[in-house]
Design a binder for these strands. Structure first.
Length: 638
RNA sequence: GCCGGCGUAGCUCAGCUGGUAGAGCAGCUGAUUCGUAAUCAGCAGGUCGGCGGUUCGAGUCCGCCCGCCGGCUCCA
């Protein structure tokens, strides 16, 4: 007798050990049809597994989020099977699920996207066959025999303890795999191969270069189409395309990875910084500025020469070697040391919008997201050890405050001591606990990346999610237990003795360039009124009204609005269309009525038109919307 | 850096198996003077990313270089 407990607390008894499928079927036929796997005391297993003991079970159906991962893993097997049919010499390695997609790394001749239809067609055949996917547990020796000609699989099997090895079979195909999988290949019906790239075996460039074929799969065609549609929409938001279309910035071969900002881009840039300065002044920060080129000796002292040289740019002048700064901190150290500090001065919050250059590998450059020259909204906070908790909390609150102004969500990650690190256990303990305590005070869940901290201290990173679903590290708070020592920073404590200050580096935007890029995609180019490069465009209905339009432009400009007059000899409809496409938040048409009554007729980007707005009302709404940095589309109704 | 793809007018793109470039939009000129998402006509615009090679002839084929894009971390 086997007794199973369901999530709702109900129990059910079975005479003989049932399979997951039989359990589902005992509840309803419909459930059985939708079932994908079974969760048994917390671990996910194939539906075909026999349940031998009393347990808590949960049937995983196509509607459960974890079902997609199982499906995609099975899809990876289907793809591998198809590839082996088409390329018998291919050797399989690993095929995991990552996010919304799966991939399989295969040692084979290089393939391109033009080969996808062929592979997809073969996959279709396999899914149409509805091969049962069968799990078989094998001994290590059996597995090695089975994979006689598969060097990668053998390497993997070597690393596995005997008695834990399983193989999944579908038709003529068998793959070493932990599982679980969907019951048969027919579940994999809505799939698509998405991209292909090179990847190294075990991520080691000394190993063979493999073909990594990516794909995605869903339980229904509808879900797949929706996902593909999302990808298309995300593509339209691509900041590189929008940046060109909206005339915000450009890139040139003469300076790869180093953006050129155009006048309209600079408006957005300056708004970002103006807001940033306002918040930082209010939070008790002072601002500094240090040179971008500093003598080699400084970098030797800071440790960058030793640890970061391969990412730095250099120059030799008058027989002296200089480095272009990849970080702002060493310069900040010099400012700190220009005078003696008292504990009474602490915390010192010294910010710097610093331009740094880092020689990133050519292959990783990506629009504004990954550049070689960028501005950090850096700050160095100097304090006593007992101020750590409160200062970190202060930064976290500032992070939230600033991100929320843009309507951006984020999550936090704590990174702890890596293997290669400096400092004592006690120092790391104190520093990491300080960060933990601040995170606890802040009161949100956070991820912990054990061993992922910098060699000089633990850190908290803030990650923003962009329009493509990628997350980007923007804000970072790093405790530095190295530089204060290297630069022999001191302060005079209440005991009249010299002490070593605690120092943190922190950013909120991270890289202004990257943050700008994220915002372009986040807003799909439609910036909130306060950031918009052009806030209003004035469209006179005919040439006679052109001079009136210019008078009105002056009036708006006096109120601080960024506005243009479009008095080209084009139709009104065309000008409106262009203004809409250029995401200009206030489209003002000027006709005889406006001239006579002195009112405004406004079209906003949602396409709504409000006529006859009195000037007081117009300016009142617009100016407060800007001042409050509102995110929503401005409205003149009501 | 490595693998794959791509690079034609300011932008988006066409140009079959080699026969010395084409469209739409944008721009300029002229006409039109218009009430909420493209008025009409004309004109002008290109070292086909760069260098070299094959060929009678290269945007097209080959090699090298540059740049851009997608990947190169999450272990059957």
């Amino acid at each position: 007798m086997i007794e199973l407990t369901f999530p709702d607390g109900n129990k059910k008894a079975f005479e003989t050990p049932p399979t997951g499928f039989e359990v589902a079927k005992s509840i309803s036929e419909a459930l059985a049809r939708e079932s994908v796997a079974i969760q048994l005391n917390g671990s996910t297993l194939d539906l075909s597994r026999k349940i031998e003991h009393d347990a808590t079970v949960r049937i995983i159906t196509t509607r459960d989020p974890e079902a997609l991962e199982i499906l995609r893993h099975s899809a990876a097997h289907v793809m591998a099977q198809a590839v082996l049919r088409l390329y018998p010499d291919a050797r399989l390695t690993i095929g995991p699920v990552v996010g919304d997609e799966f991939y399989y790394d295969i040692d084979m001749e290089s393939v391109s996207e033009t080969d996808f239809p062929k592979i997809e067609a073969e996959m279709k055949k396999i899914t149409a066959e509805k091969f049962p996917i069968r799990r078989r547990e094998v001994s290590k020796a059996e597995a090695m025999a089975l994979y006689r000609d598969e060097p990668y699989k053998r390497e993997m099997i070597e690393a596995l303890p005997d008695g834990t090895i399983s193989v999944y079979e579908q038709g003529e195909f068998a793959d070493l795999c932990r599982g679980p999988h969907v019951p048969h290949t027919g579940f994999v019906k809505a799939f698509k191969l998405t991209k292909v790239s090179g990847a190294y075996w075990r991520a080691d460039p000394n190993n063979a270069q493999l073909q990594r074929i990516y794909g995605t799969a869903f339980f229904s065609k509808k879900d797949l189409d929706q996902y593909l549609f999302f990808l298309e929409e995300a593509k339209k938001r691509n900041h590189r395309k929008l940046g060109t279309f909206l005339d915000l910035f450009s890139f040139h071969d003469e300076a790869p990875g180093m953006p050129f900002f155009h006048p309209k881009g600079m408006v957005v840039w300056n708004q970002l910084l103006e807001y940033w300065r306002q918040e930082h002044a209010a939070a008790g920060y002072v601002e500094t500025k240090t040179p971008i080129m500093l003598n080699r000796t400084l970098w030797e002292r800071s440790g960058h020469w030793e640890n970061y040289r391969e990412n730095m740019y250099f120059s030799k002048i008058d027989d002296f070697e200089y480095a272009i700064k990849p970080m702002n901190c060493p310069g900040g150290m010099l400012i700190y040391k220009t005078r003696l500090h008292s504990y009474r001065d602490f915390p010192i919050r010294a910010a710097e919008i610093g331009l740094v250059h880092r020689h990133e590998l050519s292959g990783v450059l990506s629009g504004l997201f990954r550049v070689r020259a960028f501005h950090q909204d850096d700050a160095h906070i100097f304090m006593t050890p007992d101020q750590i908790r409160e200062e970190i909390l202060g930064v976290l609150n500032l992070v939230e405050r600033i991100y929320s102004t843009f309507g951006l969500g984020f999550h936090l990650e704590l990174s702890t001591r890596p293997e290669k690190s400096i400092g004592t256990d006690a120092q790391w303990e104190q520093a990491t606990e300080g960060l933990r305590a601040a995170l606890t005070d802040y009161g949100v869940d956070y991820m912990v990346n054990e061993g992922d901290g910098a060699f000089y201290g633990p850190k908290i990173d803030a990650h923003i999610k962009d329009a493509l679903g990628r997350t980007w590290q923007c804000g970072t708070i790093q405790l530095d237990m190295s530089l204060p020592d290297r630069f022999d920073l001191t302060y005079i404590g209440p005991d009249n003795e010299k002490h070593r200050p605690i120092m943190i580096h922190r950013t909120i935007y991270g890289s202004i360039e990257r943050f700008f890029g994220i915002l372009i995609e986040h807003f799909a180019g439609r910036f909130p009124l306060w950031m918009a490069p052009v806030q209003a465009t004035l469209l006179p209905i005919n040439d006679v009204l052109a001079s009136f339009a210019r008078e009105q432009q002056k009036r708006l400009a006096e109120k601080g609005l960024r506005c243009e007059v479009d008095d080209r000899a084009e139709s009104l409809n065309k000008k409106i269309r262009e203004a809409q496409m250029n995401q200009i938040p206030l489209i003002l048409t000027l006709g005889e009525k406006e001239k006579a009554a002195g009112t405004f007729s406004v079209r906003t980007l949602d396409g709504k038109v409000t006529r006859g707005i009195a000037p007081d009302r117009f300016f009142g709404r617009v100016l407060s919307h800007i001042k409050e940095r509102k995110l929503d589309s401005i409205s003149f109704a009501g």
